[in-house]
Structures are given as C-alpha cells and as structure tokens.
Design a protein around this nucleic acid. Structure first.
Length: 288
DNA sequence: AAACGGATCAACCGCGGTCCG
DNA sequence: ACGGACCGCGGTTGATCCGTT
C-alpha cells in the first residue's frame, strides 16, 4: 500500500482494506453510486473518487460474479461481440450480467495470450496432445511417406474426403492438407478460411469440445486448392500419429485408419518437427 | 522443497467526453 | 465560449496464485 502526500492530506493507493470497503459500501448505501470525489472531500476515505468508483464497480457492487470463470456461453458471447464491436469492453460487459468491463478485458487478454502462445509453439491440448514417452514414440518416417500415409488414411478409411491439420510456419496460419474423393488423386494444401481458422483456435482453447473443423469446409468452391509436387510433398513437415493405422501405413500395410480421427490423433510431435521446409504458395500447382 | 514461469486478477494511469459554473 | 471538475473507458502494470520442473 502506498500513501502519496497530496497537499495537506495523504492519498492512499494500492489494495483496499476491508475497513475501507465497509466505508465505501456505507457511502453508496446512503448517497448512491455517484459523486465519487465527495467521498474524499467529506473526509470519509483518503482515496480519489476514481479509485472509489473503480472499487465499487469491480468488486463491491452486488450481484458480481467475482471469482467465477466465464461460462462457455459467456465466452462465446464475448468472442462474438468483440468481433462485432471491437474492444468496447463496457458495452460487451453490459450484455453479461454480473461481469464488469475489467472482467471482460482480462478474459480477452488472457485468451489472446493463449492463442498467441498456441500459434507460436502449438501443442495439441490435454487428452489429445499428450506427447508420448520418448521410448514409445515411433522412429521418424521419411518425408516421402507423408503422401503415402495420408493417401492410406483416406483410401482405407472409406471416406469421401479427409483433412489433416498442417502448420506451415512461413504462412503463419495453419493449413489443411486434404484429399478429395475416395481413391482420387487429388491432394491439396490450402490456407484455412477465416471461419476455419477461428474454429481451429476454438479447438486449441477448448479441446474437450472436440475439433470443429469440418472436412467439407475445405472443399468450398471459392477456396483455392494447391497441389504440391512430389518433391514438395517431401518438404512438408513429417506427420506422426498415435493411430496404429497411421503409424503402420508407411509400411504399406493393410491396417485402416479412420480419416475422422486424423485431426484428433495428431501427436505433439508434428509440431516439434516444424521446419522452414514448405515452398511458398506461389511455387505450388494450382488445381482449377 | 525450491525455483521458475504462466495465468489471473486488482488497481492504476491517461485520455476523451460531458457537465456545469 | 471557455475552463475546470468529474466520470467512464481502454490500456497497462504489478502482485499473487498455481502448476510444473
């Protein structure tokens, strides 16, 4: 706690004492939540009006949900409103009963930090990102195997289309690597759309809710599709999987692996192997 | 058990808008 | 119209908590 001389009186700063809270609550009970500066001029508290107002609004006001985490619905609302209104925390907070602008602001900055961290050094979150013990990890496949492995997952899994999340450091954003049509020789690497990217970030933040990337999103007509050359396939970061089928497919075995599990079965290793290997998109072939 | 780093929260600061004399 | 006081908002900082190594 700091005390700052201010003319004849001493202004207090820093954490509030319970006695101060009591005085402030009494004041509001008597005079209402206004005329904050008169609290000091009346000699009730050696605090600025600003400090008193902040304390009331953020901590003492009745019906505050202090110490209680944001519910998923609240988080969703904040995300939506932030996208719509920008950093209008007070406005956003007014739609969330019991939340203050400070709460919303803190929630948002924490979220931003988490996202930034996830993008800088992504890890699949708990449950599916558990990096296997070193002894349990498979030997790295050669980069040539990426295509074979992915092909295998798509063809043997019996799906019409499959996608796999791929992080390319040069591009900043995650990309999807995908195959369209069972058995079709149509592979591609495409940047995520904004909504896919948002889904991906949600997935990083809320892994328990499962990946919300839909493979069908990849094939929207307006999305450009790129076909890596065989040489470029080899330059893609090596992909690993905890899925036994995926693990074995470099041996051209007959195990099947479900394309639906491709994303969720990513091991943390895929992120460890990121290297500046992928060619610039301008070097890719474009399928029309 | 200690050290460390990240997450969270409370509080302050600066600025702009409004009100009022 | 002007200037000062006050209020509210958004950004930032610092303390504390908590999990991990």
């Amino acid at each position: 706690m700091k005390s700052i001389p201010n003319g004849d009186e001493v202004l207090r700063k820093g954490p509030w004492m319970p006695e101060e809270d009591e005085i402030l609550v009494d004041y509001v009970r008597q005079f209402g939540a206004r005329d904050w500066s008169s609290i000091r001029s009346k000699g009730l508290l050696p605090r600025t009006g600003k400090s008193c107002r902040l304390r009331w609004v953020n901590k003492l006001k009745p019906d505050l949900k202090s110490g209680c985490k944001f519910a998923p619905e609240e988080e969703k609302l904040v995300v939506e409103m932030q996208a719509k209104l920008g950093n209008k925390w007070a406005k956003i907070a007014s739609c969330l009963p019991g939340r203050t602008d400070n709460d919303v602001k803190n929630f948002w900055s924490t979220r931003q930090k988490r996202i930034l961290r996830a993008l800088q050094r992504p890890k699949m979150p708990s449950g599916m990102n558990q990096r296997p013990a070193r002894s349990a990890r498979r030997r790295p496949r050669s980069r040539k195997d990426n295509r074979a492995c992915f092909e295998h997952a798509c063809n043997e899994g019996g799906a019409e289309a499959a996608s796999q999340l791929l992080l390319l450091p040069e591009l900043g954003l995650p990309n999807l690597i995908h195959q369209s049509g069972r058995g079709a020789d149509l592979f591609g690497v495409a940047p995520l759309t904004d909504s896919q990217h948002n889904n991906y970030l949600d997935f990083l933040l809320h892994p328990d809710q499962g990946p919300s990337l839909q493979t069908s999103q990849v094939f929207s007509p307006e999305l450009p599709t790129f076909l890596p050359t065989s040489h470029q396939w080899e330059k893609l970061p090596m992909l690993y999987s905890e899925d036994p089928g995926m693990q074995e497919c470099d041996n051209k075995d007959t195990n099947s692996c479900s394309p639906d599990s491709v994303i969720t079965n990513f091991s943390g290793d895929v992120f460890d192997s990121l290297e500046p290997l992928c060619p610039a998109p301008s070097e890719w072939w474009v399928i029309h």
